[in-house]
Design a protein around this nucleic acid. Structure first.
Lengths: 248, 248
DNA sequence: TTGAAATGTGTACATTTTACATAATAAATT
DNA sequence: AATTTATTATGTAAAATGTACACATTTCAA
């Protein structure tokens, strides 16, 4: 048996119950919390990320993710949503928590813990408003460095998206309401970084039976227009099946 | 076009750069942060969870997850690992961050944000030490309520585990170093809540070619003993392939 | 010695994935 | 008006994978 360094329990079995939880919590170190949103878009067959010029002197010239501190009694989700609304003007945007980043030196001003969110939206959506000229859509692949640890956060969210898009129907949030199968395939190819067989891709989605033919065609394409589809979220939600399949 | 409530950018395009980031961060609300570990074990063909009796008067009689506040300049991962070591005496335990929970009323003493971790360990491991009699392994399915929002955290981690175990080789952390195929199958059946075909299950793992026959047999089983295997983590890490497969 | 309980293995069938080619359509060009 | 270009739309055969299912073997316990 290996020698064990913890020879005593740290919590005494008979410790008295704590009556004043407030006092206990007051003794905890307190940390400024932020949320950072990785806002993805899709345009010209490229995955894009919405970035803002850093407003910190020391990061002059660098871009950073859109974030803000979390207010008193504000949920993390709410904070992330608030950032999104403030920056894009959009409601009903896809948003999901990815993970917390806590390296003690991740913020130059001292300890700040941030929770990363991934957001997907349609760049062409008519409600999208990028007011400030400090905001800009960058092609994901061109982003080499960012302020703070935002490059690491971005990469984590990208991998998260790559995985997630294969198992959940969130890619549609990057497309217009009505889209062609080619647009959908371009999206998957761009995010996964592979090229897919067109016929098999179509067959796959046809077999899922989750696309609604809206009876319209593409317009203003310099070739034969394709049919337009909507994703049937309702049907998807109703039939969501639990996957069993061991594979690694 | 819908009327938009945000008529002005919140960041002025020409806002001067911030020189004193420290001052800025000092203005952020600060929040006590904790980590909570969902520590899973597997015994008698049941998924177990290590819980501690709540030390809060108001939660008297209720159990809670193992957690602690995050120290100054301590990484979240480090804090979670510290909790694990303190409670179990074990090193090299599987641990992964799941997500942050931030409901303003989740802690009775006021706002505390917690980051949930999922940990998997072998209950029979000889270094495992459950000293305090306030600590106890509970069968997952018997847990109906917990202190704080820990039931919700537990359920989130359970779903996370169900999904994760199908795509990554982490289940082995719940078993002894050497295990039989039956033990492995029991583990999957217990966690996924399904029953699997024994022959197909074996064939599946045989085709992965990631189990090493250690040339030993089970002992002290009241029937024909099965072969013992180890998981070939090395080979797995080397051959980790990127999965492409759209399915939802 | 026998019975109980579980191990270990193989095959046929169904389903899914993959690779691949041709005809039709619309727009742009001549 | 005819031709070229780009892309849509579709089907089939082969391979791989998943599923359902049965029997002989081994060890322990009685």
């Amino acid at each position: 048996m290996t020698k064990n360094v913890f020879d005593k329990p740290l919590v005494k079995p008979t410790a008295p119950l704590i009556k004043d939880a407030g006092k206990l919590v007051a003794s905890y170190p307190k940390v400024p919390i932020t949320v950072d949103c990785v806002i993805f878009g899709f345009e010209e067959n490229e995955l894009k990320v919405l970035l803002i010029r850093s407003d910190l002197e020391m990061y002059k010239g660098l871009w950073s993710l859109l974030g803000d501190n979390v207010k008193n009694n504000e949920e993390l989700d709410t904070a992330a949503y608030r950032v999104l609304k403030e920056r894009t003007g959009m409601n009903d945007v896809y948003l999901d928590q990815v993970r917390a980043f806590s390296h003690p030196q991740r913020h130059p001003a001292g300890r700040v813990i941030t929770v990363a969110y991934c957001s997907l939206l349609n760049i062409q959506h008519h409600e999208l408003k990028i007011y400030a000229n400090e905001l800009h859509w960058h092609s994901f692949s061109s982003i080499k460095s960012l302020a703070f640890d935002h490059k690491a956060i971005l990469d984590t969210c990208y991998k998260w998206l790559q995985k997630r898009i294969q198992e959940h129907p969130l890619g549609f949030n990057l497309l217009p309401d009505k889209f062609s199968l080619r647009e959908l395939q371009n999206l998957y190819e761009a995010i996964l970084g592979v090229s897919l067989d067109r016929r098999n891709f179509r067959k796959k989605f046809a077999s899922m039976d989750l696309l609604i033919d809206v009876g319209e065609m593409e317009e203003n394409v310099p070739h034969r227009p394709g049919k337009l589809y909507k994703f049937n979220f309702e049907k998807y939600e109703k039939n969501k099946r639990k996957w069993i399949g061991i594979d690694f």
